[in-house]
Simulated assay, not measured.
Amino acid sequence: MPVPSKERVIALLSDLVHDRGFDLEDVSVVSAGKHSAVRIMVDREEGIDLDTLPALSRDISEAFDAVSDFGEVPYTLEISTPGIDRPLTEERHWRRARGRKIRVELADEKFDARVGVLDEGSVTLVFHSKGVLASRVIDIADVVKAVVQVEFSRPKAEEMELAGGVVGGRPAPADTDEIVNVESPEEGSDK
């Protein structure tokens, strides 16, 4: 067998990827004549920087080299992260998308909203309704499709606050005033 099945790759890599702090999001095995491709998609809570993927790629390559069922046929190994167009299907996807704008499709409606706080199978969505900022809790199981949208401007502070606040590592909202901590003089002091 020149290239193992998707199931074999998942079985081989699940623990390795998890032990390195990643989630194995998807595996694709494509046979293309004499040269095949194994595509592996990973993600993690704190995001992925450019330095982490090469190390993971080396570890995965070593794991493939250590098994005999890959055969001698050459293959290309591709390690990537989910693109912005990946649908939100798991609770961890919703948690990682908090604060981002999405297009959500329910059985009877479609609308744009900002992802708020996730709570045991449900998520708060923040949206504009007739010019007013509103929120709504929906069950994730009721979502037909949800995809993160590209934004070219930062959201307003009120919108982010209603969505549960700014998530670490994300830009601050567009209209926040710089917060300055001012110490008040203690009672009885000469200040």
Rank of each mutant, 00 (worst) to 15 (best):
A107F: 05
E90G: 04
P82V: 12
S14P: 05
I84A: 15
E25T: 02
V29R: 05
A32T: 14
S122R: 06
R39K: 15
V17G: 06
G47D: 05
R95F: 00
S14C: 01
P82G: 14
I102E: 04
L88H: 00
D23Q: 05
R92V: 09
T76L: 07
V73H: 11
A32I: 07
D108Q: 15
G33T: 03
D15G: 12
D26C: 01
V115Y: 02
A63Q: 14
P2L: 09
S122I: 03
S28W: 11
R98H: 08
A66E: 10
P82I: 03
Y75R: 12
F111E: 05
F22Y: 01
R8W: 08
K6I: 06
T81R: 13
S57Y: 07
L13M: 02
L77T: 02
R8S: 13
S28V: 13
K101W: 02
E90C: 01
V67W: 10
V115Q: 01
I10E: 09
D49I: 04
A66D: 12
V42A: 13
F22H: 00
S61M: 10
F70S: 04
E72H: 11
T81P: 15
W94A: 07
I60Q: 11
K34R: 14
R58V: 05
D69V: 10
S36L: 05
V104E: 01
G121Y: 00
I40C: 10
D65T: 02
D59H: 12
R58P: 00
G21S: 02
M41I: 13
S14I: 02
E62I: 09
G83A: 10
R92A: 02
S68V: 11
K101C: 04
R39T: 13
L56S: 08
A63N: 05
T52P: 04
V42F: 10
G83T: 10
K110V: 15
